[in-house]
Simulated scan of single mutants.
Amino acid sequence: MRIGVDVLALGELDRLNTREWFRRHTYADEELGYAATLSPSREREFLAGRFAAKEAVVKALGTGFGGGIRPAQVCVARDDRSAPVVRLSGAAARHAQELGLAAITVSIAHKGACVVAVALAEDRGGSAAATGHQAEQIATTAVRNITRLRTGMGNARNGNA
């Protein structure tokens, strides 16, 4: 099993997401199509979550974005229950196949101005159900820890730590 985690400030991509070239380079058509149905604030949150998930996935692949892997090749779609589902294409799919990965599960969590995503890449012969549960637990713990850290940082700035 391989793991990737990414944390993003909600507004970190605001300027870039206004640029069409960035949106086309970064998001799959399916992601952009769904985002277009949302209110502006929900679209912002949705795209930030998808970007964090893409980063977590390529970290689980051990590549980052490079070596021919583009963000749009990591599509974080939705299943019939609205849970995130990873669909790889192009160089991302080839690399996952070379690594012998059967599936990649992601969990995305939002808390205030933070977005965290965890990706677990399952080797062939692993359990997808266990992997999904583990990803959710890791994301929940990460958000809780980030929130505590941010609160502590605020207290330290105010002289209350």
Results as ranks from 00 to 15, higher is better:
Ile3Asn: 02
Val5Ile: 15
Ala9Glu: 15
Leu10Phe: 06
Leu10Gln: 05
Gly11Glu: 13
Phe22Val: 06
Tyr27Glu: 01
Asp29Trp: 04
Glu31Ile: 06
Ala35His: 06
Thr37Asp: 11
Arg42Gly: 03
Glu43Gly: 07
Glu43Asp: 01
Glu45Arg: 08
Leu47Glu: 00
Gly49Ser: 08
Gly49Ile: 07
Ala53Asn: 03
Lys54Tyr: 06
Ala56Met: 13
Val57Cys: 11
Val58Gln: 11
Lys59Thr: 10
Leu61Asp: 11
Thr63Leu: 02
Phe65His: 04
Ala72Arg: 14
Val74Tyr: 07
Val74Trp: 10
Val74Glu: 01
Val74Met: 09
Val76His: 07
Asp79His: 11
Asp80Gln: 12
Ser82Glu: 10
Ala83Gly: 00
Pro84Lys: 05
Val86Pro: 13
Arg87Thr: 02
Leu88Lys: 12
Ala91Pro: 00
Ala93His: 12
His95Glu: 13
Leu99Lys: 10
Ala103Glu: 15
Ile104Thr: 01
Thr105Gln: 10
Ala117Arg: 10
Val118Phe: 02
Gly125Trp: 02
Gly126Pro: 09
Gly126Cys: 15
Ala129Met: 03
Ala129Arg: 07
Gln134Lys: 14
Ala135Met: 05
Gln137Leu: 12
Ala139Val: 00
Ala142Phe: 06
Ala142Thr: 01
Asn145Lys: 05
Ile146Trp: 04
Gly152Trp: 09
Met153Val: 03
Ala156His: 11
Ala156Asp: 14
Ala156Pro: 04
Asn160Tyr: 09
Asn160Arg: 15
Asn160His: 14
Asn160Met: 15
Asn160Asp: 15
